[in-house]
Amino acid sequence: MTELFVTAIVADNLALAFFLGMCTFLAVSRRVATAVGLGICMIVVLGLTLPLNQLVYTHFLRPGALAGWGLPELDLSFLTLVCAIGLIAAVVQVLEMLLYRYVPELFDALGVFLPLITVNCAILGGSLFMVERQYTLAESAVYGIGSGIGWALAVIMLAAIRERLEFSRIPEGLRGLGISFIVTGLLSLGFASLAGAG
């Protein structure tokens, strides 16, 4: 479990090793404060949706999952994709309502990011990896929280570096997007070198 957790944070980092959620990653990494907000959202949503999707998959979609209902031949696994994205959208929506009702301050701070997360491929990717690697319920919870922390760490680091970059002299054509890619590449190198640290 510890190994899974550490690997999910560093070596198998969703953003830096699997390139997931890159669009959001590059678009909201200009300020550290926003990056922290988005990072927290990612941890919460990944930590919630992965175990939930795992439950849905094992009890309804897996080949033979409906044997108890008298349908042993039925294989609904082709519906994984639609179910996963539907569930993610629903969880994000419910989370938004709960935040708005009980912690409005947090809603004001994080509210903008929640809708972005529904269409973030890191979340859907996490669920699909869970299905592909056949994690158990506990493993998928650990993997979800771990990869959320990894994504958050990466986006906060990139934001911190980009805030400093504003004062450096970068070749004109590389400013903005170009240099962000190069910096992300360097970050990715650093994270990859920690492979096997579990």
Partner: peptide, 22 residues
């Protein structure tokens, strides 16, 4: 390895950059 993809895209962005639409 993963990092190389970032570098190559970064350099492509540079290559595709045009002065007039900086």
């Amino acid at each position: 390895k993963a990092p190389s993809a970032f570098f190559i895209i970064g350099l492509l962005v540079w290559l595709g950059h045009r002065r007039d639409d900086a």
